[in-house]
């Protein structure tokens, strides 16, 4: 359906569409703020939506590599930076609602909360880990760091994903685990694919011996 290669013009078009689409949730929230559409607990709504979209973009960012490898559409890699930056963008909005609405920007209060409560701790660490990734997302930064080191640094996005999953789990009541489980499963699939891919390529383990498949039905 989608072409395996894109020319520059097509790529620009795809990027523009993606940029605008990724902005939609933020615009929708801005609209709701302006027209009183956030419901009875506006702060909670803002925190939930920004949190959910952070996780959505994290998962989308992590989908690029497997999807590219499976589909052979190598141009997908050119979208990864934007998706990652959007994850950081929504993560930062999420973080702002936390320090602003929950703690009125009181540093002591924020520090106490982050130290005391595991779900705030992992959320804070996850956002902090995203910060250097966002700051080193330019071509110049990649050149300065060198591809290898840059890649090593940017692998911390896996940690961000895992922390985000814990953050989500610890937030909800035992009766509302469905969504955290779904998100964690998607994350596990995306990370699992990478592990499997690495093992396939560099793994010290021998390839599985070939086995005769059992056929239950005749053709």
């Amino acid at each position: 359906m989608l072409p395996r290669t894109l020319n520059d013009r097509q790529l620009t078009a795809v990027k523009t569409v993606l940029f605008l689409a990724a902005l939609l949730p933020a615009l929708q929230l801005a609209w709701a703020i302006a027209f009183d559409g956030l419901g009875p607990n506006p702060v909670e709504t803002l925190q939930r939506k920004t949190g959910t979209w952070t996780f959505n973009f994290l998962l989308l960012t992590l989908t690029v590599t497997p999807l590219r490898s499976i589909s052979g559409m190598h141009w997908l890699i050119r979208l990864r930076r934007m998706l990652g930056l959007y994850a950081f963008f929504y993560g930062t909005l999420h973080f702002l609602t936390f320090i602003g609405f929950d703690h009125a920007f009181d540093i002591n209060d924020i520090a106490k909360d982050v130290v005391k409560r595991p779900f705030a701790t992992v959320g804070f660490v996850a956002w902090t880990l995203m910060l250097p990734l966002a700051l080193t997302s330019t071509n110049a930064a990649i050149r300065r760091l060198g591809g290898k080191r840059w890649q090593t640094l940017h692998r911390s996005v896996y940690a961000v994903g895992i922390l985000a999953a814990f953050h989500y789990f610890w937030l909800v009541k035992a009766t509302a685990l469905l969504w955290p489980i779904l998100y964690a499963t998607l994350l596990a699939l995306l990370l699992g694919w990478r592990a499997q891919d690495r093992i396939r390529r560099y793994g010290p383990w021998p390839a599985l011996p070939k086995v005769q498949t059992i056929r239950f039905f005749r053709k």
Binding site: P40, F101, A104, F119, L171
Partner: peptide, 18 residues
């Protein structure tokens, strides 16, 4: 505190700060 959050503050519906 609750096991997962503090109970020291609350958000009154309709208010932005706790």
């Amino acid at each position: 505190p609750h096991r997962r959050w503090s109970q020291s503050h609350e958000r009154r519906l309709g208010e932005f700060l706790k």
